[in-house]
Design a protein around this nucleic acid. Sequence first.
RNA 1: CGGAGCUUAUUUUAUAC
Length: 255
Amino acid sequence: TYTFNILIRGFCKNSMVDEGFRFYNQMVESKCDPDVVTYNTLMDGLCRVGKVKIAHNVMEGMNKKTRDVKPDVVTYTTLVRGYCMKQEIDEALAVFKEMVDRGLKPNDITYNTLIKGLCEAQKVDKIKEVFEGALGGGGFTPDTCTYNTLLNTHCNAGNLDEALIVFEKMMELKAQPDSATYSVLIRHLCKKEDFVRAEKFFDELFEQKILVNDDGCTPLVAAYSSIFEFLCKSGKTDKADRVFRQLMKRGTQDP
RNA sequence: CGGAGCUUAUUUUAUAC
């Protein structure tokens, strides 16, 4: 079953849900029992190509099956995200509610997913509700991911000042900013040609050794791209050179 | 005999064209 699941995931991640289902059928033929993970994976695949309704049906199917496959937190989170991606926030909220009603406890990922959707739909009041613990029975603590979402939302809306406030709040609350945090900030500061502040963050980024650390936090190429662009534009070629060397020395998976 | 195991869901998608 594991093997099939892994295989199916491979196809689903590449927008080849149909192939995924082919293996699902084969799985059944070989008397391997699909489990929650199998269904969740397929559902995610469906959502990624915009077939949220079908994904929803899959979940209904899981409900009907008397076997021990039952929708879990991941199932619901996947579906919430699916609806968010289609900008159908009301559906997303409905799914979320159904989950809570059924006694399933949303986790951080569920909340973060929902918050992202609410940001895109500009449902500010709803976001507040989530933060105040009014939705889903509380127990939600915003993490780095949550703040990154808020940060990015403000940036996209052009509210850089708001974004910086979020950043400071992160510091206050000891939510470690990660490479995504900085990469977003720097990129947007560059876009605004605010090189002074961009460089400040850039230096900070290096001091904190966020990029250098190898505990699985792989700096993304995107982060470097904007950094280089910025360094070159502002004539700090020497610095760019230094950073580049460091990058090469570490070896990267990505050119 | 007992135990363990990152199979699934969340934030950033850059430059150039």
